[in-house]
């Protein structure tokens, strides 16, 4: 009696069967595959003393790896916001040959395995590669430098920005721009004061998504990075190196920092998405 009444309180009554079974399976599977393994990380970290944890994450090599991962992820996300916005504008507003194909190409970084992207970018931007050979005479070396990491992170982040902003711009009421123009705004003023604020939440969300993805990226980066400790070594690679050296405490501590950063980003992204949805709804 008390059991059934508490179940009714937990969810609204429904004639559809299977809530208990499906909910139970969902929670069990989620617990086993996601939550238990993630908590293992925190359990292992808690076995470290606080001083030890601080010592690991503030070691010069760790700090630098974190700096490379976060700094370049930030830079790549910024590049993607600027160029992603241009790409979206062109895809939504202009017509050109093979537009559908170009549009489909945007999803390649989602679908192409990171290792494949990694070796392809390395070959392309190496000194003897198609693009690298053009940059070499200018004294610009991309592959095996931090610049290479940036290239890889731009590659994997672009679709996040484009696919977040594209539907918002496509849905933007054309009357808004006409209204601004009829009120005497120049095209530039209209773009800055009307269009940009309308797509701003989506741009920020895309930025955060691209940044979050880039911070933890591994596969596409390690081939092109050169992986020089203190210069072009990313945090995920350092975790792998520490694991291979059987320095589990170090690997765990760095992973904890990465995971906490991901959680924080996830929160920010959720907030942004809610804001974008509010702003995006046509009649509020």
């Amino acid at each position: 009696m008390s059991l059934s009444s508490s179940r009714i309180a937990f969810r609204q009554q429904s004639v559809i069967p299977g809530f208990g079974l499906t909910m139970g399976l969902t929670l069990t599977w989620l617990g086993l595959i996601v939550l238990l393994p993630l908590s293992a990380l925190f359990i292992k970290t808690s076995e470290l003393s606080f001083e030890r944890f601080i010592a690991i994450v503030t070691a010069a090599r760790t700090l630098h790896a974190l700096q490379v991962s976060f700094g370049l992820a930030l830079a790549a996300a910024l590049v993607n916001v600027v160029f992603g916005a241009i790409v979206v504008w062109v895809l939504v507003r202009y017509e050109f040959p093979f537009k559908k194909g170009v549009d489909a190409l945007i999803d390649i970084p989602f679908a192409l395995p990171t290792a494949v992207a990694g070796i392809a970018l390395t070959a392309l931007y190496a000194e003897n590669g198609w693009v690298g050979s053009l940059l070499a005479p200018l004294g610009i070396q991309v592959s095996f430098t931090p610049l290479g990491i940036l290239v890889a992170l731009i590659f994997i982040g672009l679709p996040f920005v484009v696919r977040t902003v594209q539907p918002v711009l496509a849905d933007l009421d054309q009357e808004l721009e006409e209204a601004a123009a009829s009120l005497g705004a120049t095209r530039t003023q209209t773009l800055i004061k009307v269009v940009l604020p309308s797509i701003w939440p989506a741009l920020l969300t895309g930025f955060a998504l691209a940044f979050a993805r880039a911070v933890g990226e591994y596969g596409s980066v390690i081939f092109i990075a050169g992986n020089l400790p203190g210069v072009s070594e990313i945090a995920p690679l350092l975790i792998v190196i520490r694991l291979e050296e059987f320095r589990y405490a170090d690997a765990t501590a760095i992973a904890t920092v990465m995971l906490l950063a991901s959680f924080a980003l996830l929160l920010v992204i959720n907030r942004l998405q809610r804001w974008a949805e509010l702003r995006g709804s046509r009649h509020g």
């Binding site: 809530f19 989620l30 990171t114 933890g216 596969g219 992973a255 959720n270």
Partner: peptide, 29 residues
């Protein structure tokens, strides 16, 4: 198909693996 409290938290938890670095995903196992 059902209404229950904590639904959005559950959805967030299901999405969680997307925001975890692949290396960390391997490490936890």
């Amino acid at each position: 198909k059902f209404e229950f409290p904590g639904k959005s938290l559950l959805i967030t938890l299901i999405d969680l693996p997307f925001s975890v670095s692949p290396v960390v995903a391997g490490l936890i196992y």
